[in-house]
Design a protein around this nucleic acid. Structure first.
Lengths: 176, 176
DNA sequence: CGCTTCTTTCAGAACTTTGTGAAGTTAAGG
DNA sequence: CCTTAACTTCACAAAGTTCTGAAAGAAGCG
């Protein structure tokens, strides 16, 4: 609650810059979240992530998230736990308060993609086992070996790519 | 379930190469499929894909899939439709028969990853709109702009990477 | 031209996932 | 040391997916 009435289309743009219109922000949040959901992210984590991304400081408290997205504290808790696990947000305690802040940083995608490597690793293990158990000299075994080679290639490439991004980013945006 | 009895450990290796033992194949299929599921692929598509990957020719008919995975024709149909849509299998008609064969090729991942670009594109569109509607001069707008830059960077890099894979593959495996 | 075989579609049942309310846990502040 | 504020966890309810059986729809073959 505490935002329902929209204050009758406030005539004066709050501080500066029109970006504070909650309705506009909300529209973006929901739209972007929808795209993330379509790509496989669960709904609540997607909405929480989008809300953080669209916030001024990149940090919001649990209460603020619940209010903006109209969801219960439990839902916030679950979503945040998920996002932290896949390294899409970090959590930090406000000193001298029991409030916790959830933060998304500019280079967060870097971290998230790095995390995918764990998954790739497990795929590779399964494939290696498959090559052995099906026989490296069989047609199926050869196909598995090639798939495995692709993932190994990918792993190296992604690491190099991320390094390039770090450089590119600094050139374009300066150190964040 | 469905793996307890193991047919009393068949004494003679079927044709040549021990790879025909259905139990061994099945174990790999289910294990690898489980990894794919964990990464977000729906269960049936994952199992069908793994079964194709572990087959000798890389092609199986609907009936063969149903038999090996102990699922109904309807389930096969649904899974195959999904996989075809994300370019993880291709379908081909057997000339002079109403049978259809589903195939996974060695470079199928190439295709599948290329398809991801469609998703990236939509993310980019949503972000661009966000930068505009929140204001490019606001803190939130700047964060969105940086995120957008990352995806644009990614898109170019992935394209280049795939090209390198094609070269690397040919050197390692010869033309498939 | 009708029969047979293979695939798809459809409606329903079973399962899994997801979100909520309420109780529980931890920690600041008087 | 008790109170109060914030977050987490748990059990349950709601919603959405996913698989199956059955029937309908194509396509070769006699």
């Amino acid at each position: 609650m505490a935002e329902a009435k929209a204050t009758g289309r406030s005539p004066e743009p709050a501080a500066r810059g029109a970006e504070r219109d909650p309705e506009v922000v909300s529209r973006f949040v929901e739209h972007f979240a929808a795209q993330l959901v379509e790509a496989g992210l669960p709904r609540m984590p997607a909405r929480v992530f989008a809300a953080l991304l669209a916030s001024d400081t990149g940090t919001l408290t649990s209460a603020e998230l619940g209010e903006r997205l109209k969801i219960s504290p439990a839902a916030v808790s679950g979503a945040v736990r998920y996002l932290a696990q896949v390294h899409m947000v970090s959590r930090e305690r406000e000193p001298g308060s029991r409030r916790e802040r959830y933060r998304v940083r500019g280079d967060q995608w870097y971290e998230a993609l790095t995390n995918r490597e764990v998954i790739l690793k497990r795929w590779e293990d399964a494939l290696r086992e498959g090559v052995t158990s099906l026989g490296a000299d069989t047609p199926a075994g050869r196909r598995l070996a090639e798939t495995l080679a692709f993932f190994e290639f990918l792993q190296d490439e992604v690491a190099a790519m991320m390094e390039r991004w770090r450089v590119h980013r600094e050139q374009t945006f300066g150190r964040g």
